[in-house]
């Protein structure tokens, strides 16, 4: 299997404050890689660095190597908060067309996410759609450019469990199409459900890498154990 992205000894330095890394991982073609960690562990920062849109302000420095074996156009991004990721001033339709893809490709992508946005609803504004619809829309917008890698940053954290399950189904479908997924989440079970390999991030460092089953059965790090313990088990009184 070819490697799509190879991260070696990535370190992010802040002049005052935490230091992320060094972390190394790689994502292969047609693989779903999970990055699990608590808030502030540096998950989103890693995603931004991978897409080369990390801002260097206040003396923030990036060291190490990120090797991309695909072009920047072949990386798509699904953000955490779908409502914030769309410009509230423009209709959904005009923002899809801004991607510069053909109408056919757009309709096809919308079909894939089971979001039948016909002429009328393409004229609606982002605030007129529900969170679940928006997240589907953003996944469609990510897919429409036929990416090789889809980076999803907490794509379900603003959704209720029903919508979350639907969105997870979509990610399984994306994977089945042979698109690599970098799935960033704080919710361990979601990553275990989707990913073929995963890494656990704790205080800016990767503390554990492996296939989900191994990690589930024999967690090596204390933090992973705590994450596993925190997963609720349904007990009916």
């Amino acid at each position: 299997m070819n490697t799509l992205i190879d991260v070696k000894d990535l370190v992010l330095d802040y002049p005052k404050g935490p230091r992320f890394g060094p972390m190394s991982f790689s994502i292969a073609e047609k693989e779903a890689f999970g990055l699990v960690g608590e808030s502030g562990a540096g998950k989103s920062t890693v995603a931004l660095a991978l897409m080369n849109v990390l801002k260097f302000k206040g003396g923030r420095k990036l060291k190490g190597k990120i090797e991309r074996h695909c072009s920047a156009k072949e990386i798509a991004y699904v953000p955490q908060d779908p409502a914030a990721a769309l410009d509230p001033l423009f209709t959904v339709g005009s923002q899809i067309r801004e991607l510069g893809c053909s109408e056919v490709a757009i309709l096809e992508a919308l079909e894939k996410v089971k979001l039948p946005l016909t002429g009328m609803s393409l004229k609606s504004y982002p605030h007129e759609l529900s969170g679940g619809m928006l997240q589907r829309l953003l996944i469609a917008m990510a897919l429409v450019r036929r990416p090789k890698l889809l980076i999803a940053d907490e794509p379900t954290s603003s959704l209720d469990v029903i919508h979350q399950a639907e969105i997870m189904k979509l990610f399984h479908a994306v994977r089945a199409e042979g698109i690599s997924v970098l799935f960033i989440t704080h919710h361990l079970p979601l990553a275990m459900d989707l990913c073929s390999r995963m890494a656990v991030l704790y205080e800016g460092k990767i503390v554990e890498t492996g296939i989900p089953r191994e990690i589930y059965e024999a967690p090596r790090h204390e933090f992973t154990r705590r994450l596993l313990e925190a997963v609720p088990v349904l007990e009916v009184a």
Binding site: M51, P79, A85
Partner: peptide
């Protein structure tokens, strides 16, 4: 700093 600006930057 809004997400839709980040999204536009991701799109290149």
């Amino acid at each position: 700093e809004r997400d839709f600006v980040l999204a536009a930057r991701v799109l290149g």
